[in-house]
Write a protein that binds this DNA or RNA. Structure first.
Lengths: 224, 224
DNA sequence: GTCAAGTCTTGACATGTGTCCAGGCGGGGC
DNA sequence: GCCCCGCCTGGACACATGTCAAGACTTGAC
């Protein structure tokens, strides 16, 4: 919308043409300079996507929030969908290890439970734009076939991520888990999604709501 | 710049103007013919929205799937957003009583549980387009303020709908509920959303997955 | 029949979007 | 020196979309 471009620095990066040959690699990574640029573009694209949402974000919006012109995006990505899927994968790499530290470091059941709840609340507030983008993409995958493979893969990865927390929690509590991985993830994710919606509407209690629900939900997943 | 700089009263004589008077009704329903047309347009608009998704659906798409030209939509709705919100409300009225019959008719805990699971599976398959549209709208409400009031209202109504099922189930089982309404809805909804995604990707096990999860989840929400 | 209000259609305009094209800058090999 | 080539820019085209304008058809009251 507005042209709030900060400093229009000129930098470089183009990498398109050599598609006719080879082909198994959609865009040939010429130098590692190019890969770096792709990540750089993906980074700022994710910020824009998190603000505007998947459908309302144009390539010009993405370029405007970066330091490049709108055609650089076409230099590094053959297509808009290729950019999106690249961004999605880039996003996954960032968020998927979010709870690994607390899984590795916690030594009691109550500790891992508390730290998990804390981390949930922290990321709810700090990364709310990224989270709503994820829910946006996952929902769009219900309509667009191209998004499905990546979304399903990420969803499975997130399920594993939650499952690692839960199995560690159960082990520390010396009690068995009574739900399977898919159901547990669906429940935790449902609670998180609802808390996110409330948080984004300005509800100041959303964070504490999420913490309370996490603290009461997890013990309920354990057996006798 | 454009020609609608200032002032420029719109001199349309139709459903539009009467804002100066009364006001609480945004568009004056001239005859009941008008209301009927609005519902008719909302009906076909919902079908199109369910196919294409909220963002990819244009007014021309909606009109093309109806028997009218694309400008009729502007005759009956001042705005695209007014059409959308009207459709959302129209949608709510259709789906919100989905489980009322089985709540009223079931006489045992196992019966209401089984019938609820059956109904979940049935609507998952039969109304999958409407469900993904709902999730789409709810996610878009995280980005667009205009959608929030309606989405939050519908979400609360759906929460009540689930809560009626659960309280009746608990009463028939003569056991107490151990979760609050918001958490129960978030969990059930999370499971349903995940099953919907799987169903839409062509997973033939999605329906049975949903049934199993419902049958094991609900008893878990009851106390001793 | 006449007329006016309601209803609907055809056509157009301004804007935004994805994509393509022609060219400019700068460095490295000859 | 020079030329080639990877990087990047600005402008342009083709199309879609929301909105607007003006006219045509319908209907009912007089």
């Amino acid at each position: 919308m507005s042209r709030l471009d900060s400093g229009q620095i000129r930098t470089r990066g183009w990498l398109r043409l050599p598609v006719m040959k080879g082909n198994s690699a959609p865009t040939r990574a010429r130098g590692e300079r190019s890969l770096e640029r792709r990540d750089q573009l993906a980074q700022s694209a994710l910020l824009t996507l998190g603000e505007l949402g998947y459908a309302r974000t144009s390539l010009r919006d993405i370029a405007a929030n970066s330091e490049f012109s709108h055609e650089v995006v076409h230099y590094y990505f053959t297509d808009k969908t290729e950019l999106i899927t690249y961004c999605v994968r880039y996003y996954k790499a960032q968020c998927v290890t979010r709870y690994d530290d607390l899984v590795a470091e916690s030594t009691t059941a109550t500790e891992i439970l508390a730290r998990f709840a804390d981390k949930l609340v922290e990321t709810l507030v700090a990364d709310s734009s990224m989270h709503r983008l994820w829910y946006d993409l996952r929902t769009q995958a219900m309509f667009e076939d191209v998004l499905r493979p990546d979304v399903l893969m990420i969803d499975a990865t997130l399920e594993d991520m939650i499952w690692r927390v839960l199995t560690r929690y159960a082990a520390l509590a010396a009690r068995p888990l009574t739900v399977d991985s898919a159901t547990a993830y669906a429940m935790v994710d449902g609670v998180f999604e609802r808390a996110l919606l409330r948080h984004l509407t300005g509800d100041p209690d959303a964070a504490e709501f999420l913490r309370d629900r996490a603290l009461t939900l997890l013990p309920r997943l354990l057996g006798d």
